[in-house]
Simulated scan of single mutants.
Amino acid sequence: MATNTQAPVKALFLDIGGVLLTNGWDRKSRKAAAEKFGLNADEIGDRHRMTFDTYESGKLDLDEYLTRTVFFEDRAFTRQEFKQFMLDQSQPYPEMLNLIRDLKAKHGLKIAVVNNEGRELNEHRIRTFQLGSFVDFFISSCFVHFRKPDADIWKVALDIAQVPREHVVYIDDRPMFVQVAESLGLRGIAHRKYEETRDRLGALGLAL
Score class of each variant (00 low, 15 high):
R30K: 03
L20E: 11
D46I: 13
L20K: 07
K106L: 11
Q89N: 13
D53V: 02
G45L: 04
V9E: 10
F77P: 04
R119S: 11
R119V: 15
R47N: 02
L62D: 00
R47E: 10
D15I: 01
R68D: 06
T3S: 11
N4S: 15
L39Y: 02
D15W: 12
I100R: 02
I111K: 06
Q6R: 06
D26E: 09
D26Q: 12
S90Q: 14
T51M: 04
D88Y: 12
D53G: 10
D102T: 06
K59Y: 01
T5Q: 15
F37N: 07
F52S: 15
E43T: 07
N23Q: 10
A2S: 12
I16V: 09
H107E: 09
I44Q: 03
Y93C: 11
Q89M: 14
Y93I: 13
D74E: 03
K31Q: 07
A11S: 10
E117I: 12
T54R: 13
N4Q: 12
T51P: 06
G118V: 00
R101Y: 03
A33K: 01
W25F: 02
L60N: 10
L39T: 03
E73V: 05
R119C: 15
K10V: 13
L39E: 03
L60H: 05
G17T: 05
D46N: 12
T67Y: 11
V113T: 04
T51V: 07
R27E: 15
G108K: 06
L62M: 03
V113K: 11
L109K: 01
V70A: 14
N23P: 01
T5V: 15
L20N: 04
S90D: 15
N40K: 02
N4P: 14
A2N: 14
D102F: 06
Q91M: 11
V70R: 14
L39V: 00
I111L: 07
L103V: 02
G45M: 00
H107P: 01
F71D: 11
M50P: 00
P94M: 04
